[in-house]
Simulated assay, not measured.
Amino acid sequence: MSSLQYYNEPGAGQKHSDLCHYSQAVVVGDIVKCSGQGGWDNTGALDANDLHRQVELAFENVDRVLQTVGLRGWEDVYSIRSYHVDIRRSHDKFMEMLNRRIPGHRPIHTEIGVPALAFPQMMIEIEVEAYAGNN
Rank of each mutant, 00 (worst) to 15 (best):
Ser3Asp: 15
Ser3Cys: 06
Gly11Ile: 08
Val27Trp: 00
Gln24Thr: 08
Leu46Asp: 04
His21Pro: 02
Glu9Asn: 15
Gly13Trp: 02
Lys33Ser: 13
Gly29Trp: 00
Glu9Lys: 10
Asn8Lys: 02
Thr43Val: 05
Gln24Pro: 00
Gln37Leu: 08
Ala12Met: 13
Val32Ile: 08
Gln24Leu: 08
Gly13Phe: 02
Asp47Ser: 10
Gly39Thr: 06
Gln5Pro: 00
Lys33Ala: 13
Gly11Leu: 11
Gly38Tyr: 03
Val32Gln: 02
Ile31His: 05
Val27Gly: 00
Tyr22Glu: 07
Asp18Thr: 08
Asn8Ala: 04
Ser35Met: 09
Ala12Asp: 05
Gly38Trp: 01
Thr43Gln: 15
Glu9Ile: 07
Ala45Pro: 00
Glu9Tyr: 05
Gln14Pro: 00
Leu19Gly: 02
Val27Lys: 15
His21Gly: 12
Gly29Tyr: 01
Gly44Arg: 10
Gln24Lys: 13
Ser23Val: 03
Gly11Val: 05
Leu4Ser: 08
Lys15Gly: 04
Leu46Tyr: 09
Val27Arg: 14
Lys33Trp: 08
Leu46Phe: 08
Ala48Gly: 09
Thr43Gly: 07
Leu46Trp: 01
Ala48Asn: 06
Cys20Asp: 15
Gln14Ala: 07
Gly11Tyr: 06
Tyr22Trp: 07
His21Tyr: 09
Leu46Arg: 02
Leu4Pro: 00
Thr43Phe: 11
Leu46Ser: 03
Ala45Thr: 08
Gln5Met: 10
Ser3Gln: 12
Trp40Gly: 08
Pro10His: 07
Lys15Thr: 14
Ala25Thr: 02
Leu4Gly: 03
Val28Ser: 09
Asn8Gln: 11
Leu4Ile: 01
Gly39Leu: 10
Gln37Asp: 00
Gln37Glu: 11
Lys15Asp: 07
Ser35Glu: 10
Glu9Trp: 06
Ala45Gly: 04
Gln14Asp: 10
Asp47Trp: 02
Val32Tyr: 02
